[in-house]
Nucleic acid binder design. Structure first.
Lengths: 249, 249
DNA sequence: TGCACCGTTGCGCTGTATGCAACGGTGATT
DNA sequence: AATCACCGTTGCATACAGCGCAACGGTGCA
């Protein structure tokens, strides 16, 4: 299909066999030396390859990064499941697991509360970016350069009286989430429902998902919900650990 | 530098954040949907990405493969070292560790024999492809499609009376190495020196290096050198295991 | 049933990627 | 010390690959 991309990928595959210099790569891929140089420059710009002192090219750090991220993504749901079940059994509250998919935050697991109350959410459904704790937690991990465009194109329609409806207030909120390491949703997404969420980190160190508990205030006041923060953070830490995350000392 | 390559790489980075569909990727990278489709096709052809049933794109298996290979390469020397030292201490023979770099097989470690005899080889030096056991072992792991061009452009100059000097005989030899899992060099590289080599495999399952012992026949006859095969294979297996290789049952 | 969404294709133009030829620095060889 | 070979690098002109556009068609939701 796409010649230059195809050639660049072949270079990566070739480097999988071991480091190599320009000429060797040019010969083994059948591409002109000049072209190989330029392709490798682009690859190196993005850290897919790098060059050592003796002009040997190697596979770069980005490869490891991507592999770690991909592993995390594939595994979170499976790894999180038993922890979520245990948490749900003990506290009996509606528990969500959500992850980034494309530009959306999507619920990838849900455990119902033990009481009658059911919330409007479903596995596979998208979480509102401006009003849910899981979204805040996940977006808070993105670098500003990625966060900005998302916030700019975000739908800020009010779902309740408390919903954050301006980019400015939202960015303030994100700043707070970054500082405290967890997020809340005080009746911002559904009237009379409070929620807190914490991040799950993977081997790459990046946030790969978020867990949250949601409780109607007829069951527990917001202050009582905060009593769940510590156990929730503990669950988050356990899942992160199982996903290969090692907190730096 | 190279627009389409750069865009393709950005797609991979983007997918590191989680699966996404065409439109989402088009928006987050600022590239036309049509173009994204075509780039993803090329990426998918090489298994850098794949599409699931619901048209979501994910990072593909090639990423893991490359990451595993790169890790292996970076680590072999370090991991192998203590095992080689132990082997060298016990048997006192010249021991080499070699790996593929570019189109060449290069000595990346060497331990001298305990007797006076020194061999013509040095860390960083290239091993002759047609006459050394390490090269045979490493090349034997390549698929025929990669092996062929290498053999075709190989230098078959005779170093001794026993050196393999034709592609046909070399391919026969490789076939034998594949079957028995190790290689020999019966005075093919240096007169009066016999050598046997075994592969080191990494987490990816591929051969990432080779270990060999070389002994002048004034010290040991070829038959006596074969007594070292079993311990050498044991060393190879230990290093492979430490490199993350798991033999399939 | 209608509509909206999203992946897909054919086409024609533009700009990018390519190969060539030549330069220059480095390291090995005699 | 001098020469040579090797290899990375650059400028340039050409060709063609990659691109965006517009339109199609299938699927799922309202």
């Amino acid at each position: 299909m796409s010649q230059s991309v195809s050639r660049a990928l072949h270079l990566l595959v070739q480097l999988g066999n071991g480091p190599a210099n320009l000429d060797q790569l040019a010969e083994s891929t059948g591409v002109h030396k000049t072209t190989v140089l330029r392709l490798l420059r682009t690859l190196s710009d993005e850290r897919f390859t790098f060059r050592d002192n003796s002009n040997q090219y190697h596979l770069g750090s980005r490869i490891f990064e991507l592999a770690a991220q991909a592993t995390d993504q594939r595994e979170v749901r499976r790894i999180a499941s038993p922890h979520l079940v245990a948490f749900n059994r003990e506290y009996g509250r509606t528990t969500h697991l959500a992850a980034m998919e494309g530009g959306d935050v999507v619920y990838i697991d849900k455990l119902e509360s033990h009481d009658q109350i059911r919330m409007y959410s479903r596995i596979g459904l998208r979480a509102n970016l401006n009003s849910t704790a899981v979204a805040k937690v996940i977006l808070a991990d993105l670098p500003d350069s990625e966060l900005r465009p998302i916030v700019d194109s975000m739908d800020f329609s009010a779902r309740t009286a408390n919903t954050i409806t301006t980019p400015e207030r939202y960015l303030d909120e994100i700043r707070m989430v970054r500082e405290q390491g967890w997020a809340h949703d005080q009746e911002e997404n559904e009237p009379s429902v409070n929620c807190i969420g914490v991040p799950i980190r993977g081997a790459s160190g990046r946030v790969v998902a978020a867990v949250s508990v949601s409780v109607p205030d007829v069951v527990l006041s917001y202050e009582r919900v905060l009593d769940l923060l510590e156990p929730l953070q503990a669950v988050g830490a356990r899942i992160s650990r199982d996903c290969g995350y090692r907190a730096q000392p």
